[in-house]
Design a protein around this nucleic acid. Structure first.
Lengths: 253, 253
DNA sequence: AAGTGGTCTAGACCACCAA
DNA sequence: TGGTGGTCTAGACCACTTT
C-alpha cells in the first residue's frame, strides 16, 4: 500500500471532463484556487506529479497553473518538500471590500447614481480580465459614487453576465452591488487587488464630479475574487484627488 | 520598410557556451535583461523561436526566461505580434518594508543620493508626528531615490535624534537607512502606515526627477513603527506618476 | 532511498495579427 | 499566408529534503 507524503490534503474534486473550449491550465488553476481557499495555511498540496496524473495533464501544465498561484502569493513552494497553502499576506487598514465599506469606515454615507447599465459581449481585454471567453455576456455598470452627497468617484465595473443573469435590472440608484451579489447569488468577495495610478481628470469625468478639469486624481483598477478564486468583478474608477486619499498599512516579513 | 519583422533589434550577444554550473534559463534571462536594458521602450525583441535556435535551447526554456521579464514588467507580450521592451513602470507593493525592499523585489537595484541631512529641533508638527516633545532633536534626511539608476522619488524623512545619536553622519549615498538602524541600534520596522495623495509635481521636484513640471504624481506620507509601537520615522515623499504605481490587496473581514 | 520541486527537451496544435 | 505568442505533451535529469 503506497503511503505517500501527501495524504494530508482532502480529495481533489475531479470534474467529469475539462471544457474543451477553455484552456486546461486555466480550469485547473481555478480548481486549485478553490482547494487552497478552503484549506488553512500550511496545508500541503498534492504533488505536481499526482495532480497531473489525476487530471490527465502534463506536469508542465500543472506547474504553469501553480506558478500563477505562487505569483499571487496563494501558495508557497518548498524545494524538495512540497507546495503549501501560504500564510495570507495582509495589508490591514482600510480593508474595505467596496466603496460603500470604505466610506462607512470613514464615517460617511455612501451613495451611487447609475449612469448606465448594459449587457454586451466581452471584448478581448475584458474577457481576459474576467477570465471568460471573448463574446461571453458582460454586465457593464457605470456609476457616480458619492460620500455624504458629495461626488467622489466615477466608477466603471464589469461582471460576468453568465454568472449573474438579470443583474443589470437589479442595480438601481443607491443599491449596493455587493449586497445584490450576496443576497441573490450568495457570492462574496474574498480578496481584491488594486492598482493605483496618478492621473489628471479629463473633461467628462471632471464634469460628473463637479471639479475642475485637470485635477490631480487617482485611477484605481480593481479586480475582485470570490472564495473559489473566480473573478467576480473588474473595474476602473476615477477618484477625485482633492477629497480622496488612499490609505494602507504594510507589515514587512 | 523592414524586410523581416524582427530586424529592428541589434544582434544578440552569443556567449561561447553556457556555464554548465548554472541554469541555462537564468543565464538566458540575464542576457535578455541586458538587451532590454539597452534598448528603448517599444523595441521589438527577436521571436521566441529565433532566440531558441540561436542559443540552442528549447522554446519552453526561452518562454520561461521571458516570463520572468514579463512578470517584472520589463517586456510586454503581444499575441500574434511579438514581444516588446515595455515602458518602465514600478509599483509600490504592500509587502515591502522599504523603498529598497520594494525595488529589490522587482529585480531592480535601489539607489539613494543624499541631498541633505541635518539635525534640528522639532517643530510642533514634526514633534506631534514623531510623538516627541517640541524642540527635541530631529534628523531630517532628504534623498533622491532611484531604481536601476532612474530617479523615482524625492524622499524627505525625519527620525528622532535622541534615539539615534550620530545618525546623520552614518547616512551617505546608497546606504540603507533601515540597514543602519538595524545594525547600529537593532531597531526594525514592524508596521508602517501610508497615506497616498494625488498631486502634480512642482518645479523643484520635477527637476530632481528629470520629468516635466506638472506631471501627475503621488505624495506618500509614511509613518513607521518599531516592535514597541514607537514612531521610528515620519516622512513625505513625492513619487513620479509616470513610472510608479501603488498596488495593494484588500481582504474584507 | 524515495519523493519533491526545478529545469529542460523537441516536438505539436491553436488563435491571433500583419502583410 | 506566414510568423507570432499561447498552450500542451510525455518524457528526462537534477538538486534538494525527509525518512
Amino acid at each position: 500500500m503506497p503511503r505517500t507524503r501527501h495524504d494530508t490534503f482532502p480529495a481533489i474534486p475531479l470534474p467529469e471532463a475539462f471544457d474543451s473550449e477553455r484552456a486546461k491550465g486555466d480550469q485547473l488553476r481555478e480548481i486549485l484556487e478553490a482547494m487552497v481557499a478552503t484549506e488553512p495555511p500550511g496545508t500541503l498540496l498534492p504533488s505536481e506529479r499526482s495532480i497531473a496524473q489525476r487530471f490527465h495533464v502534463a506536469r508542465m501544465t500543472v506547474r504553469q497553473a501553480i506558478n500563477e498561484l505562487a505569483a499571487r502569493g496563494l501558495v508557497r513552494r518548498a524545494m524538495g518538500t512540497g507546495t503549501f497553502v501560504a500564510e495570507p499576506r495582509v495589508s490591514h487598514s482600510t480593508t474595505a471590500g467596496s466603496f460603500s465599506d470604505d466610506m462607512r469606515q470613514r464615517g460617511l454615507t455612501p451613495g451611487a447614481r447609475v449612469i448606465s447599465v448594459r449587457e454586451q459581449p466581452a471584448t478581448v481585454l475584458v474577457a481576459e480580465r474576467l477570465r471568460i471567453a471573448e463574446g461571453d455576456p458582460v454586465v457593464t455598470l457605470n456609476r457616480l459614487r458619492s460620500a455624504d452627497g458629495v461626488p467622489m468617484a466615477v466608477e466603471q465595473t464589469r461582471l460576468p453576465g453568465a454568472r449573474f443573469p438579470g443583474l443589470a435590472a437589479l442595480v438601481t440608484d443607491d443599491v449596493s452591488l455587493y449586497g445584490v451579489l450576496a443576497d441573490r447569488w450568495a457570492v462574496r468577495v474574498r480578496t481584491a487587488t488594486h492598482r493605483v495610478s496618478a492621473i489628471v481628470l479629463a473633461e467628462t469625468d471632471a464634469a460628473l464630479l463637479d471639479v475642475p478639469t485637470g485635477l490631480p486624481s487617482f485611477l484605481i483598477e480593481r479586480t475582485a475574487y470570490d472564495e473559489a478564486g473566480l473573478v467576480i468583478e473588474w473595474g476602473r474608477s476615477r477618484y477625485r484627488g482633492d477629497r480622496y486619499d488612499v490609505v494602507f498599512d504594510t507589515t514587512p516579513d
